[in-house]
Simulated assay, not measured.
Amino acid sequence: MNSLEILVQYWPRLLDGTLMTIKLTLLGALIAAAVSPVFALVRVHAAPMAQAPLRIYVSFMRGTPILAQLFLIFYGSGQFRPFLQEWGLWNFFRDPFNCALLAFALNSTAYQTEILRGGILGVPRGEIEAAKAIGLNRLQTLRRVVFPHAYRIAWPALGNEVILLMKASALASVVTVFDLMGRTRQVFSKTFDFSVYLWAALIYLCITAIFVLLWRQAERRLSRHTGARHNPQATAQPLKETRA
């Protein structure tokens, strides 16, 4: 059986694994994206003592292998089964997919927090002072000035983080989550043909290429949008209408 025949025969399994990889990556990245802005603000503005627990969490997640984190959540949760059952959380932690998703989300949150913190620190102080001068409150300043500019600065690094998360999702197979790599191992155990790993690598490459293309398109749209927003000529008329 040649490599093309293997692909034709086992493509449903490889497709199923590909969809699982995409699902893990997107959900993990989205959960991290929802939490990291708040954590980034704490890292920038909170007092050192107040942000100490967050700094410990970020340092632990960035300084330890994601495989170790995955094992701690999946196998370690069994040590606290009575407590988790009492709180109604055991059904969540007994599911390998939930444990893998939690591990990836926690890991990505730590990285996205630090990336976004750098973006916030890169916002020119003059833009924040200008927002205060025209009467924007703190929440409006964050929503209309700080975060748009911070995301424009951090966007390439955030894209790299999602790509790294996608490649790290291959580790989910060690806790019986059959992502692309898990399905590839299943096919190899039946065929003993190393070409199946080549097909898996090509699928990963295609996913990454499509993601990079979409991410760059979003970056161009974000740059145009924030560029117009910070253009004095573009914002002068709306501000005049608001005051009227």
Rank of each mutant, 00 (worst) to 15 (best):
G28M: 06
V35C: 00
L102N: 08
K167N: 06
S3P: 05
A168H: 13
W11N: 08
P124W: 13
H225Q: 15
P65V: 09
T242V: 01
I128T: 15
L54V: 00
Y75K: 12
V212S: 12
A200P: 14
I6L: 12
T235S: 15
W199E: 09
I203Q: 09
F97S: 01
V123R: 15
L26S: 05
T113I: 02
A131E: 11
G182L: 11
A50Q: 13
P82E: 11
A40E: 11
G88V: 12
V175G: 15
V146L: 13
D95K: 13
F83N: 06
S3H: 00
Q233E: 10
R94I: 10
V146P: 02
R183I: 00
D193Q: 01
T141P: 01
L171P: 00
L72R: 04
R185G: 01
P82M: 05
G63C: 14
L213V: 03
L121W: 05
K132T: 15
G227H: 08
L180M: 07
L205F: 07
F92W: 06
S36Y: 07
T208K: 07
V123E: 12
I163S: 08
M181D: 01
K23W: 12
G28T: 02
P37N: 14
E114G: 03
F97C: 04
V35Y: 01
A103L: 07
L27K: 00
V187A: 11
R138L: 05
S36W: 02
F71D: 04
L205G: 09
W87F: 14
L164I: 07
C99R: 08
P238Y: 11
